[in-house]
Design a protein around this nucleic acid. Structure first.
Length: 282
DNA sequence: AGCGTCTCCTGCTTGC
DNA sequence: TGCAAGCAGGAGACGC
């Protein structure tokens, strides 16, 4: 589920329901996520107010009034769903995979749902540099104005792997995942097999790639992200960028570009699926 | 430094 | 129908 557009949507949803409100309590159903939920998680968060929420690449950071912060990553299948004290309903199936429940002072319950339990929650202590290190390590956000031609040429110039794998590398650019890497390369008409350092010499193509990435991500955010298996917004509503896929999940289907009769190919790169059109992407 | 491989977990799809 | 294998949006740890 969650790549940059989905995380951005979830961040905005959380902001709407959390900012300005306090945590009454936290119920932990499952502490064994990717990392074990710390034993003082509830104690640390309880009675603090949410000040602001930001996104760094695919991470969400919740700033608390007591100077602590919560670092959240949604892994492959993490999501938040809202319910209220009154109804206590989720409107989205059984609660089998709800691992945490945040009870807020505005009578809202924010439920963390994660089938594969690859997501995590960490407490960042005041003055701890986790966040600063994270900002260094995840490179520049794909939607940032700093993600520009000069930057990407520099980052790719020594890379001997393929461009598709480089786009998934969060230390090069933050936020792109497997879906949007394939879709962006299609839009930029660049083959996913292109060696990164060769592409780095082609200023025009790099510029085209950057604008394709920004276009695709912004478009996906506008339509609520991609719902492949279970991404929804906090109210349980699906996105519909999946209907706009040109290549992702379209193996052996006809290329959508007008006049192109080729079929979309599926290959494996660094253990991940890549979809592309051999005729359109050179 | 950079690349490939493996791993965490559950559920759905595919093939025998 | 039943069962097992394979695959899935992510990323950190490891060896080379």
């Amino acid at each position: 589920m969650p790549e940059l557009p989905e995380v951005e949507i979830i961040k905005n949803n959380l902001s709407e329901y959390m900012i300005g409100n306090e945590f009454i309590s936290i119920k932990i159903n499952t502490s064994k996520l990717r990392y074990k939920i710390p034993h003082n998680f509830d104690e640390t968060i309880k009675n603090s107010k949410v000040i602001k929420i930001e996104r760094i690449a695919k991470y969400i950071i919740i700033y608390l009034s007591n100077e602590f912060k919560i670092l959240v990553h949604l892994g492959m299948t993490g999501n938040f769903l809202i319910s209220t004290q009154k109804t206590h309903s989720l409107g989205n199936g059984p609660g089998k995979h709800i691992h945490l429940k945040f009870f807020m002072t505005n009578n809202v319950i924010i439920n963390y749902h994660d089938i594969r339990k690859f997501g995590f929650f960490k407490i960042i202590y005041p003055d701890n540099l986790v966040l600063e290190n994270l900002k260094k390590n995840v490179g520049i956000d794909a939607l940032s104005s700093k993600f520009n031609t000069k930057y990407l040429m520099y980052k790719l110039k020594n890379r001997t792997g393929n461009i598709k794998t480089s786009l998934l590398n969060q230390s090069i650019v933050g936020g792109i995942g497997n879906i949007y890497a394939s879709e962006s390369l299609f839009r930029a008409k660049i083959s996913p097999l292109t060696i990164s350092k060769n592409l780095a010499n082609d200023k025009k193509k790099i510029t085209k790639l950057i604008s394709a990435i920004k276009y695709i991500l912004a478009d996906a955010i506008n339509v609520g992200g991609s719902t492949i298996k279970n991404h929804t917004n906090i109210k349980g509503e699906s996105g519909y960028f999946q209907y706009k896929f040109n290549v992702y999940n379209r193996e052996q289907m006809k290329c959508k570009r007008l006049g192109c009769n080729s079929l979309i190919l599926k290959i494996n790169q660094s253990g991940r699926s890549t979809f592309y059109c051999e005729s359109c992407q050179k």
